[in-house]
């Protein structure tokens, strides 16, 4: 089995991986980083979303070997350096943007990817950007609200 090396949340890591090992499996099983979840096998649900070299990807739709040498960011890397919630995470808590929490890692990573390129997204832009992230609990209301709030927008009127 080949040894696959990458950087995850700023830390160099290395673990053996069969060719068929997915990046999600590498993170969860080889590294024991279980913040990234798996919710489907057809690439639709997005609960496995991470950033690879700064880009949002579905870690269950990419082989670990394809991330050789890459910079990977997962939900475990989204808190502030002092361990407190990052701005997006805090907005999700403030606006009740999660219930069971299973889709949440993917939602946080998707939101972060959006706000990097669009600092003040409209409601429609947020909703469109989440087209690859399913949530079964929230009806999306508070997720959309949280992401807009994280971008510094006043969501009190829009979402009430």
């Amino acid at each position: 089995m080949a040894q696959v090396k990458m950087t995850v949340n700023g830390k160099a890591v290395s673990a053996p991986a069969e060719g068929r090992m997915l990046l999600s499996t590498y993170l969860r099983e080889a590294l024991g980083m279980t913040g990234t979840h798996v919710g489907c096998d057809t690439g639709q649900c997005g609960v496995c979303a991470v950033h690879v070299d700064g880009k949002l990807v579905k870690s269950c739709n990419m082989f670990a070997a394809e991330a050789e040498g890459a910079e990977v960011t997962t939900v475990e890397g989204m808190a502030n350096e002092d361990g407190s919630l990052g701005a997006i995470q805090q907005a999700f808590q403030d606006h009740h943007g999660l219930q069971c929490g299973f889709c949440t890692p993917g939602m946080v990573m998707a939101a972060s990817a959006l706000l990097k390129v669009n600092s003040k997204p409209t409601e429609a832009e947020v909703r469109a950007h989440l087209s690859g992230n399913l949530c079964r609990c929230t009806g999306y209301h508070n997720i959309v609200k949280a992401i807009m709030a994280a971008s510094g927008q006043d969501v009190a009127v829009a979402a009430e």
């Binding site: 690439g43 997005g46 979303a49 880009k55 949002l56 990807v57 579905k58 739709n61 990419m62 998707a110 990817a113 959006l114 950007h129 087209s131 690859g132 992230n133």
Partner: peptide, 9 residues
């Protein structure tokens, strides 16, 4: 096409 994550791959 697809969604943002799919479009990145």
């Amino acid at each position: 096409i697809g969604d943002p994550a799919v479009r990145n791959r």
